[in-house]
Design a protein around this nucleic acid. Sequence first.
DNA 1: AACCAGGGAAGAT
DNA 2: ATCTTCCATGGT
Length: 290
Amino acid sequence: MWKETVKLDTIYDFDYTLKRLEMDPLINVDRDQRRVAIPIKSGDGERHKVTVEAKGSTPHPVFEIAADSVDYRKELLKKMSDLFQWEKDLTVVSEHFIGTNLQQLFYAHPGTPIVRDFDLYFSLMKGIIHQQLNMKFAYTLSTRFVEAYGFFMDGVWFYPEPEDIARLSYDDLRKMQFSQRKAEYVIDTSRKIVEGEIDLVSLADKPDKEIIDTLVKIRGIGPWTAENWLLFGLGRDDLLPKADIGIQNALKFYFDMDRKPTIPEITNLCDGWTPFQSYASLTLWRSIES
DNA sequence: AACCAGGGAAGAT
DNA sequence: ATCTTCCATGGT
């Protein structure tokens, strides 16, 4: 068992982060203790549970990270830093939006970080499974999927492996109320990953546009899912999913419109948000969460 | 009971 | 290339 303390130089709203992570019933969050337990695989394939607990007060928390095996200390610390994006300076992000039409939004919700999904495959499957579904039912499906084919260890759920999903029949997923289409998308994409036709790890090094062009060719992955993977899977800074219903509703509310904005209207509204559009997206989503 | 949901494919211009 | 229509399933 080891522990390490990390102190940030940036504002960082960890309590909101916990609230967001808590939306996923499979993530082990304790909001009172201000702690989350993360399932993570090291490079050699070993599974670990890493806990992250906030000690200092928001907006400048101090984190205490802990896990069992000392051998993996350095690797797991780096993974946590990558997932939670502790090296990104959110003060710079907030300052970028001063003078833009989102100034008030960022005043209202400062220090909203990008927190990456814990695993690249998880992130892509979650995107497909959640397409066009309300959040509640989306997480119901995700939960059934993970509880059936994932791995539970020491209080945390590890996401299913693509190899395990590639073996399934469409009916296996239909039984848990996946639509036929969604079952095909999830299983076929997993098979392509297993066969090496898609390599998420090597894709992760490419520029945004190239990744989108590659992913969109896969049946079941459209622009929304590709952008979602860039934002939550890779933690890229400059994504604004204009077709996302949540973004549209948030813009409608924030700009006091009587209807949702069209995509060309959003293109006008987002002038000046680059290179931090992802933070605009996250903060917009956040603004309409209860 | 109709409309919505953190879309996408397939078909029609 | 861009626009419609259909798909599927639960939530409000």
